[in-house]
Design a protein around this nucleic acid. Structure first.
Lengths: 209, 209
DNA sequence: AAAACTAGGGATGGTCCCATCCCTAGTTTG
DNA sequence: CAAACTAGGGATGGGACCATCCCTAGTTTT
């Protein structure tokens, strides 16, 4: 059984990271720790295969490079058999190199860390030994979330809303079919159903329908 | 239709916050913006009832108090009719007061911001006009997440694992029943089913079974 | 004009999860 | 001892969502 631990003080982020880890492995256990103390205790009592660390913990000076390194270093020494992924909000290439030197297998900025990216990070580690993902803002449109839609319908709307200008709807349906591993006809159905729901509720639709 | 906008650069956190907002309203639309620019455009084009802001955006100096205030101030001026909630990782009482003065209705630290807390923040705003939730680490045990469990089963395990010493299991089943609005017998069932699954898979169970 | 894209709608079977109720049987506790 | 807590298990109905296939009909492109 694959065992992972996520050390991150921000609760919503910790839960989200735990989800990402879980989504990356068929069968696994993921522990979430809010503090270095909790994490240290767990690392002493059990073996872990993967540890995700945000070095910006409370009780440490967020501007002190030494503190940040110290946190990660303590974790790495406490779990020599694990893969270590550093996740941070204030990422920079210099710090990435520092963490790499002390044994981290990945350095990931939170801004670019979207659902699904974590799996790619793990793939990078497997193939290249190290994964570096620095933050950069790439969004040009907002995300929309409608409470009336099912997850599939929401996905359909998302992908259609992000469609580049000039791209046919049919092309998007094919793309959706590939990504979700369903038939293009089904993708089309979800989109149309979603659109109809929103119209019925009197929504102003996002640009691009 | 209730309309909300979440301005937060970290993708996973933005999506989590959008979920929290969505969970707080029966029917709503939630937009997520990664940058101040995207948010500004949306605020110009549409009316919003609620805006959630993390002032620690890329392109601004995270240590500059002026920059942080400026971001929130621009948003508040661009959406005079909305309720404004400031969410930040590096929270302190002094800054809270600053944001309150310029018109924010809530100041929330990310560390204590767990699923469901956002609703409480909104309740505070309704009843008292302002909500202040500063971060503090309160966890003493880690969270466990098992990939084999359904959400209900996972909840049952969570609540049981957090049980205070000496508390009877039956008491927990009643508590679960209250929180999830189900029969205590059902709560018991979920817990036992979850436990059985984990045993079958050869898991080491968390302390407290 | 033919082909493709658009925008709706109806019907169906399957799966997973939710919630409930009922059953046995060993161990603690009052 | 009786009552309550513990630890399993089986069966059932309902609901939401998934995925597919089929239908009509107007518009646009080739």
């Amino acid at each position: 059984m694959f065992r992972a631990l996520v050390l991150e003080d921000q609760t919503l982020m910790r839960l989200a990271l735990m989800n990402e880890v879980q989504a990356s492995f068929e069968k696994c256990v993921v522990l979430g720790a809010e503090t270095l103390n909790i994490a240290t205790v767990e690392l002493q009592n059990d073996h872990f295969d993967l540890v995700v660390i945000d070095p910006g913990l409370p009780g440490f000076d967020p501007t002190s490079q030494d503190d940040r390194i110290a946190v990660v270093d303590r974790i790495i020494e406490a779990s020599p058999g694990a893969i270590h992924v550093v996740v941070t909000g204030s990422d920079n290439p210099c710090e990435a190199d520092g963490f790499r030197r002390i044994g981290a297998a990945a350095y990931v900025g939170k801004t670019g860390l979207a659902p699904g990216v974590f799996s790619n990070v793990l793939d990078d580690i497997s193939s290249k030994g190290f994964s570096l993902r620095l933050s950069r803002a790439v969004m040009t449109k907002p995300d929309y979330r409608f409470s009336a839609l099912t997850p599939r319908e929401q996905e359909a709307v998302d992908m259609m809303a992000r469609r580049a200008p000039g791209v046919k709807r049919t092309a998007i349906f094919s793309l959706m079919a590939d990504r979700l591993a369903i038939a293009p006809g089904s993708a089309e159905k979800y989109y149309k159903q979603a659109r109809a729901k929103l119209m019925r509720q009197g929504h102003r639709l996002p640009r691009g329908l």
